[in-house]
Simulated scan of single mutants.
Amino acid sequence: MRISARNQLEGKVVAVTEGAVNAKVDVDLGEGKIITSIISMDALKELELTEGSSVTTLIKASSVLLMA
């Protein structure tokens, strides 16, 4: 699959918290760095994500918010 996102980080799913509509997925990138993604329950099921799943996170710069 080809994709325009250049910010790609490999990691492992360490936690999945299911909600009524969305799921929170925590991904360990290594060295104590965790990234969290909110995805639909449909996407969670389609991707068959569970704790321990290997994933690639994709970050589009136009969708990143920072707070200090």
Rank of each mutant, 00 (worst) to 15 (best):
Met1Pro: 14
Met1Lys: 00
Met1Cys: 01
Arg2Gln: 01
Arg2Thr: 08
Arg2Pro: 11
Arg2Asp: 07
Ile3Gly: 11
Ile3Pro: 05
Ile3Tyr: 02
Ser4Trp: 01
Ser4Val: 08
Ser4Thr: 13
Arg6Asn: 09
Arg6Pro: 07
Asn7Asp: 00
Gln8Val: 15
Leu9Cys: 07
Leu9Ile: 05
Glu10Thr: 12
Glu10Gln: 07
Gly11Phe: 02
Gly11Asp: 04
Gly11Lys: 00
Lys12Ser: 14
Lys12Ala: 12
Val13Cys: 12
Val13Leu: 01
Val13Ser: 08
Val14Glu: 03
Val14Asp: 02
Val14Gln: 00
Val14Tyr: 00
Ala15Tyr: 09
Ala15Arg: 04
Val16Glu: 02
Thr17Asp: 14
Glu18Thr: 08
Glu18Lys: 06
Glu18Leu: 06
Gly19Gln: 04
Ala20Met: 00
Ala20His: 01
Val21Trp: 06
Val21Met: 05
Asn22Gly: 11
Asn22Ala: 13
Ala23Leu: 01
Lys24Val: 10
Lys24Trp: 12
Lys24Gly: 14
Val25Gly: 07
Val25Lys: 05
Val25Gln: 04
Asp26Asn: 13
Asp26Trp: 01
Asp26Cys: 07
Asp26Phe: 08
Val27Lys: 01
Asp28Ala: 11
Asp28Lys: 07
Asp28Asn: 06
Asp28Cys: 10
Leu29Gln: 03
Leu29Ile: 14
Leu29Cys: 08
Leu29Arg: 03
Gly30Met: 00
Glu31Met: 11
Glu31Ala: 13
Gly32Trp: 02
Gly32Ser: 09
Gly32Ala: 13
Lys33Asn: 00
Ile34Ala: 08
Ile34Tyr: 00
Ile35Pro: 07
Ile35Tyr: 03
Ile35Asp: 00
Ile35Gln: 04
Thr36Ile: 07
Ser37Pro: 06
Ser37Gly: 13
Ile38Cys: 13
Ile38Val: 14
Ile38Gly: 13
Ile39Ala: 14
Ile39Asn: 07
Ile39Gln: 05
Ser40Val: 03
Ser40Cys: 06
Ser40Arg: 07
Met41Pro: 06
Met41Ala: 15
Met41Val: 11
Met41Arg: 15
Met41Phe: 09
Met41Glu: 15
Asp42Tyr: 09
Asp42Gln: 14
Asp42Glu: 13
Ala43Phe: 04
Leu44Pro: 09
Leu44Asn: 14
Leu44Trp: 02
Lys45Ser: 15
Glu46Thr: 10
Leu47Phe: 08
Leu47Pro: 09
Glu48Phe: 12
Leu49Val: 08
Leu49Trp: 00
Leu49Tyr: 02
Thr50Pro: 12
Glu51Gly: 13
Glu51Trp: 05
Glu51Asn: 14
Glu51Val: 14
Glu51Cys: 12
Gly52Arg: 04
Gly52His: 03
Ser53Tyr: 03
Ser53Met: 10
Ser53Gln: 05
Val55Phe: 01
Thr56Met: 01
Thr57Arg: 03
Thr57Met: 02
Thr57Cys: 08
Leu58Gln: 05
Leu58Val: 04
Ile59Met: 03
Ile59Gln: 06
Ile59Ala: 06
Ile59Leu: 07
Lys60Asn: 06
Lys60Trp: 04
Ala61Pro: 10
Ser62Ala: 15
Ser63Gly: 15
Ser63Val: 06
Ser63Ala: 14
Leu65His: 14
Leu65Arg: 07
Leu65Lys: 11
Leu66Arg: 03
Leu66Glu: 10
Leu66Thr: 01
Leu66Asp: 09
Leu66Gly: 10
Leu66Pro: 10
Met67Ala: 15
Met67Leu: 15
Met67His: 14
Ala68Asn: 10
Ala68Ile: 08
